[in-house]
Design a binder for these strands. Structure first.
Lengths: 244, 244, 244, 244
DNA sequence: TATGAATGAGACTTCATTCAT
DNA sequence: AATGAATGAAGTCTCATTCAT
């Protein structure tokens, strides 16, 4: 294992760095990272010019990783019209089976409607609540939350961090949520002139509420707490975009 | 300077520490703080047991300071129909076209309605937009934004930071915004079952949008950008709570 | 490149090492040298036992190279009356009025006599001035000057450096200068009991003046400055060895 | 010994640094310097911003020190007959065997004439030889030689070194030598149009010969060797400036 | 009480050299 | 034979904290 750019070691270093930076911030020591990765300090510096380079690479890697996990975790429960129930950890990851659109038909939600409205917005609220719970779980997971805190902490010192960075809520938004709103609009369930905006609003408010409640991912939130937040936020959005 | 820990020096230390921590994070050096405060290092340690204690005190002081500034800056430029609230030092930020209060009568807004609804929600949207612009300006001010970033950065290492901490958006919410929503509800302009919740939702979404757009206060936002965010958020809230 | 230490690589390493050491001193890194030479580090160590060995070899190589360049550059632009010596590539430095050889006859110098003496010492002074200018240009060239500084810098740590080392002024002296003085003596122009000594004195004083004036080759000297130094030194020597 | 800028420690650091730099060059370690000075590393950095600052300060200090020693050591052993010059603090360094002044009258030199000329230049040659021996001893002393080597070694990296720097030979020249030549001229012993130039030429050539012979102060020179160099150089100068 | 000099640990980074491929 | 990854030591500099004045 000499003489050839060991990709394995590079990965080990990156993993160790990610863990260290997420745990201790930028002040994590290169010594510690090297030790955890099981390599010499110089090896770290051969792969990454300096600490800052290593830091940015680690953040980028963490983003990729968490984005992947997140997307699969938060994939819409794919509710069909009749059965709107969360088939749980259905990580389809590939060939995402077009998330179930909110059909116009009478939504016999298998859960009591969160709001007090009549059909059919209630079905949308319910689906959004389910989606929201998943998004919350992902966004408040230790890793994602730590990445978010780290980014904010260092955005002043490393402006590159703001490139390709929204708020840690984007991954959820771009892919699935906007599509869901569009389908709701197409189905006449909601009156959503700009699905992307609606998706962003839902995600931002949802995640912000979750972050504040959990001290930015530092304190655990019970399932009930997450459900309440998701339901409340879904309620707001559905109210706002309910057809006149 | 003769035997009793001078309060003036304490204040000087606290000010220097606040500035240093806000600027450089927890890694700001005690040396620098003592130098800026114009005292010896030992004096710092006589007033504050160690760096962590100094840090927490500085953050607490910064919160008090910014909360004060914030409240006066973001006080609603106006009042509700029946009761005028806190006519304090509401720095109108120069010629700002005295925001319309949620009047019950036909709101001849001196500005084109942001939305496309009929009366009188439009007036509320407009007022909320104005309020939102002020809130945004305050929340994205260098000091407030830095305090927010610092808190998030260190919340993992100093859990005490989460005590008495919402999201940096609370001050706006608690005092003024909730009252405004209540008055709107009382006046029949909006249908707001829980004014505090509405206030929180408005503030959270507003500030989050502003933070994301400005890289957490790191990049400047133009007045137009801030206006667009405020208007969009106000639109959402007013839509959501518009009377059925 | 298949089993025998390639001579081409050795030369490349030596060249890279010379450049690096001349530029950065002994602290130049082996890494950098290997990189510039386009070889692996191990290859360097296969050709040279360790850094010190490489260093000494590089210095030796640089001496050979610069001595060659120097001799051709500083070859006397002229010859003595009886025997013409090596009229080689005597770069006349542009329009320089072909230096007068020490002719025995009444020297109708094509230049006004630098000093105020009568014939024929004036001719010798002029020729020495021309020679001196060339010697100066060579001795203060970036490479030669750097080699000189490097040698002095490391002579304490690597005593081998003083073997075969005079002062970087020897090459001029040994070959050409002494011969010139001898010819002058033979021609009766000067009274030089020990031509080698005279050559050494001229060269040492000339080069020392040039080095001091140029901060040891670190600052550029104009042609005029070099001319003044050469003229002054030639004047001294010719005065000292003028026939009684 | 706290709380007050200890000048004693500063001096100790400077001394240690001077010794270390003179001995090992710029690569001497700050650790070692601090250890030798008997202080902590941080104390070094409190007194001197960084290594370069310390280095330059050490060189400056060494120059001052050696210049002082040098001037007293090389002070002209005596004065001229008519005009006693520099009655100043010419610490005669103990019973120096009153060197022959350039007497105008028939110079009954208390030493056999070094050359083979007639009077009175011979007296000047002898005195210059004596002076030259002292200059040589000073210039080749371990400390002065090391300082010279160090300066040349680092002049490329620290251009400030060339400020206030001639060649390490100036101190001798400026003060005493030029005066001596002037007195010789006044007395009609020598024909020296520019005493300062003569002094410089004598000193430069003398010291350069000494440096080359001693491998830049690295190898010891016997008294005889130094005498020979001084005599030879004095001979050249006196020849050059002998009255026509 | 207040000062700032002093400390010792530890931060990042680089080096000459060796080893496994 | 040649590569460059790896090592361990060392270098410069900074920090939070204490001590002597």
């Amino acid at each position: 294992m000499t003489g050839v750019p060991s990709q394995a070691k590079r990965r080990a270093i990156l993993e160790a760095a990610t863990e260290a930076f997420l745990h201790s911030g930028y002040s994590a020591s290169v010594d510690e990272i090297a030790a955890v990765a099981g390599v010499g300090k110089q090896t770290v510096y051969r792969h990454f010019r300096d600490k800052q380079t290593l830091f940015l690479a680690a953040v980028a890697a963490a983003r990729t990783t968490t984005a992947e996990q997140t997307l699969t975790a938060a994939s819409p429960p794919t509710t069909g019209p009749p059965t709107a129930s969360r088939p749980t950890a259905s990580r389809p990851t590939a060939g995402r089976p077009a998330a179930g659109p909110p059909t116009a038909g009478p939504a016999t939600a298998d859960r009591p409607a969160a709001g007090d409205w009549v059909f059919p917005s209630g079905a949308a609220a319910e689906t959004l609540t389910l989606l929201g719970e998943q998004i919350l779980a992902a966004a408040l997971s230790p890793t994602v939350a730590a990445l978010h805190r780290l980014t904010i902490a260092e955005i002043g010192n490393h402006p590159e961090l703001s490139d390709h960075w929204g708020d840690g809520a984007e991954p959820f938004v771009d892919q699935e949520l906007a599509g869901y709103f569009r389908r709701c609009a197409d189905a006449g369930l909601l009156d959503v002139p700009d699905p992307a905006r609606a998706a962003r609003q839902f995600a931002y408010l949802l995640v912000t509420e979750g972050r504040v409640a959990s001290a930015y991912g530092t304190k655990h939130l019970t399932t009930d707490q997450r459900h309440a937040i998701a339901a409340e936020t879904a309620d707001l959005i559905v109210r706002a975009y309910r057809p006149a």
